[in-house]
Amino acid sequence: MKVRVQNHWPPGHIRTPAYLRGKTGEIEREIGLFNNPEQNAYRLPPQQRRLVRVRFTMAEIWGDAAETPDDVIEAEIYAHWLEPA
């Protein structure tokens, strides 16, 4: 399934790397439910969030600057940061 990482830039602690925001990838696998780091970081009672591994091509992330366009990066992204693409 294709997903896009939301292009949001909130202040404070998040676990979505800047270089992946706004980028589109494929869900590689579902990992399960984990504490939302955006609450956990402030010691607030955390809600459980779906965590998924998303696979991005270097071409998608870096465009023409990609070292090898077909190489890939896989990262864990919380589902509330993802939208259908």
């Binding site: 404070g12 602690h13 676990r15 504490n35 780091p37 956990n40 970081a41 402030y42 010691r43």
Partner: peptide
């Protein structure tokens, strides 16, 4: 008393 995310938040 803390967690990995709160450790990281202060580091950031």
């Amino acid at each position: 008393l803390m967690n990995t995310d709160s450790l990281r938040r202060v580091l950031e």
